[in-house]
């Protein structure tokens, strides 16, 4: 991994289109300002992990619960 030291207000550029600037440092938090093409997905890593975890949970389902949900929808239908 490339490790760079930056001071407040300093920038790292990646390729021609991405600039990452240190905009605030407070305690153990660093706020980063990112200039990148609007068309690019940028997200905090936790979100990626959250989706991954949700997938894991979603994969362990049983037919009984699914049937229950379907029945519930059906019951709503008749009202």
């Amino acid at each position: 991994m490339l490790v760079l030291t930056r001071k407040m207000g300093e920038v790292v550029t990646i390729g021609d289109q991405i600039r990452i600037k240190v905009v605030e440092m407070k305690g153990n938090q660093v706020r980063l300002g990112i200039d990148a093409p609007t068309d690019m997905r940028i997200y905090r890593e936790e979100i990626y992990l959250k989706v991954q975890r949700e997938n894991q949970m979603a994969a362990s389902w049983n037919l009984e619960d699914l049937q229950k949900a379907v029945n519930y929808l059906g019951a709503g239908d008749k009202e």
Binding site: K50, V51, E54, N55, A58, W61, D65, A69
Partner: peptide, 17 residues
């Protein structure tokens, strides 16, 4: 993707992924 639950009211859908 749907995360099933025994209680239908706890069923969630993943709209972020």
């Amino acid at each position: 993707v749907v995360t099933m639950a025994a209680d239908p009211f706890e069923i969630t859908v993943n709209l972020q992924g």
